Computed example of a mutant assay.
Amino acid sequence: MRIIFIGDVMGPIGQETLTTYLPKLKAKYRPQLTIVNGENIAMGKGITKSLYKTILTAGADVVTMGNHTFDKDDIYEFIDDANKLIRPANFPAQHTPGKGYVLTKVNQTTVGVINLQGRVFLDSIDDPFAKVDEILAEIQAQCDYIFLDFHAETTSEKEAMGYYVDGRVTAVVGTHTHVQTNDAKILPKGTAYLTDVGMTGPYDEILGMRKERVIERFLNHRPVRFETPLSGRGQLNGCVIDFSSTKNAARKIELIQITPDQPFLE
């Protein structure tokens, strides 16, 4: 069993890069499941129904989100009917539309995909550690494998989650910081781990936003409006994970990085 996970798709450049390279990556790696984080696809903040469909058309089977899930009002009109879209499960359940996990069938294999959000330097929503316990109690018996997109700011919180669920889920991959980390590994009890998968979007900007505006903020310490560019060179970051034949264990995790300096090789 093999999956591909593609990091935060950022704005128009991210859309173009995803639609260009995801089909090629699927042809090269032949994954049974493809997951894409889409929380930044709408000009850097949020997602719309048409862009959700763009991600699916590009080849995604599941779309995960993050702290920008509800930045576009359009999402309230379709999230409850979007069977392949999940948002952080630890948003307060009583008041939040959508769902935080999905079970998907691949031939005779059931894969659970969970989305959670960290709380360090982000909104103080429900406890992700307590929430993952709750979800695993509900779905673990039904799943052969479980993938967790942990959308969080700090390395320490992501690592803590990885070790907390080691052996109980197949893979924990972080999103949100937009810079791919070089710490892909298999944890002691068999869970594949990566602190941050990186982003898919502008290559010559700062975290996907126009570098001039970000630099201006650092120079004058006054509020500026961050913007994601409409055109320019792109990058795609992701990972490929091979699951073991053992339940909730991984055999291998490999980084994917496509940039102008590291072009895609067939």
Rank of each mutant, 00 (worst) to 15 (best):
Gly118Phe: 02
Phe218Met: 14
Leu116Val: 12
Ser156Gly: 07
Ala137Ile: 01
Gly167Ser: 11
Tyr164Asp: 08
Thr195Ile: 01
Phe226Cys: 09
Thr155Gly: 03
Gly112His: 05
Ile114Glu: 02
Met161Tyr: 00
Arg233Cys: 05
Thr155Met: 06
Thr200Phe: 07
Val179Ala: 11
Thr175Trp: 06
Ala192Pro: 03
Asp133Cys: 05
Asp196Asn: 08
Glu138Val: 05
Asn220Met: 12
Ser231Trp: 07
Met199Asn: 01
Ala192His: 00
Thr155Asp: 04
Leu219Cys: 11
Ala141Leu: 07
Phe121Arg: 10
Val179Gln: 09
Tyr163Asn: 11
Tyr164Glu: 02
Ile215Phe: 15
Gly190Thr: 06
Leu122Trp: 02
Lys131Thr: 15
Ile146His: 00
Gly112Trp: 05
Phe121Ala: 11
Pro229Ser: 08
Asp133Ser: 12
Asp183Lys: 03
Ala192Gln: 04
Ile139Thr: 05
Ala171Pro: 04
Pro223Ser: 11
Asp204Tyr: 04
Glu138Phe: 03
Glu227Thr: 15
Pro202Lys: 03
Ile114Ser: 03
Gln140Glu: 15
Asp127Ala: 07
Tyr193Ala: 01
Tyr203Phe: 15
Glu205Thr: 11
Phe150Asn: 00
Leu122Asn: 05
Thr228Val: 14
Pro223Gly: 04
Phe129Gln: 03
Val132Lys: 00
Glu205Ser: 12
Thr175Arg: 01
Glu159Val: 12
Tyr164Ile: 04
Thr181Ser: 11
Pro202Thr: 05
Leu194Asp: 00
Tyr193Gly: 00
His221Ser: 14
Ala184Gln: 09
Ala137His: 08
Val132Met: 05
Leu230Ala: 13
Thr175Leu: 05
Asp126Asn: 14
Phe129Pro: 01
Gly118Tyr: 03
Gly162Glu: 00
Gly167Asp: 10
Pro202Met: 05
Leu219Ala: 14
Val197Gln: 01
Gly190Ser: 08
Leu194Pro: 02
Leu148Asn: 01
Glu138Tyr: 01
Ile206Ser: 07
Val113Pro: 01
Arg210Tyr: 03
Arg217Asp: 03
Gly232Phe: 07
Val172Gln: 02
Asn220Lys: 15
Ile125Leu: 13
Ile206Cys: 14
Ile135Cys: 03
Ala184His: 09
Glu153Gln: 13
Ser156Thr: 15
Val224Tyr: 11
Arg119Cys: 08
Tyr203Trp: 11
Leu230Ile: 11
